[in-house]
Amino acid sequence: METFGIWLAALLTIGIISFLYKDNVLYKACESIFVGISAGYWFITYYWDNLYRKFYLGVTDMDNPHRFFLWIAFALGVMMLTRLIGKIGWLSRWPLAFIVGATAGLYMMTYFVSNAFVQVGATIKLPPDFGSVGSYISFGMIALGTFSGLVYFFFSKEHKGVFGGTAKLGIWFLMVTFGASFGYTVMSRMSLMLGRLDFLFGEWLGMIN
């Protein structure tokens, strides 16, 4: 079974890599297997984890203070299925409206605090090494970069004149950020491919130890 598993994994690996050359029969087969198997896997995970563990065990636990709420969630879930019944299909909008409202409400505060608020606060905090000339330059650059980046995102004024120049500076800072993320990621992506090659040539073909 173990040998069969390794062979299967190796063929699937080659099938996916072959996409780099062009779309082909092997890739299509791998893609279809991947879609079917993984969709089934996720459904089963949801089923046992959410419907059985979170809902069923939740409502049958008499000490659970949230039992009543779980039934509301269940009712909203059932409403989702009314989409399949033409005449009352509009009821499926209720759970959707609930989810959209809850996501908007929940993240409105979370993002406001953790992104907008905290980032402004962090920029005007005293850095630990404040005092040296280098630290002044770094501190000033962080403030300048953040400020000019915000100017770039400004919607109410056209990017012209001094304002446009500041926005341009903001774009440059953003480009450094993107470049830094890009450079930071390249190495780790290479190691992923090395991992797969190691599997093919080591575990499967036994050519490397």
């Binding site: 402004v120 005293l126 501190f139 000033g140 403030a143 915000l150 109410s156």
Partner: peptide, 27 residues
């Protein structure tokens, strides 16, 4: 979207005044 810009003005104001006050006060 205009309202969003007000938020940015507040953030920029905070950055400018905060960094200026920090530099004057500490440096």
């Amino acid at each position: 979207l205009k309202g969003q810009d007000v938020g940015k003005v507040i953030a920029m104001f905070g950055l400018l005044v905060g960094t200026a006050a920090m530099t004057l006060s500490v440096a």
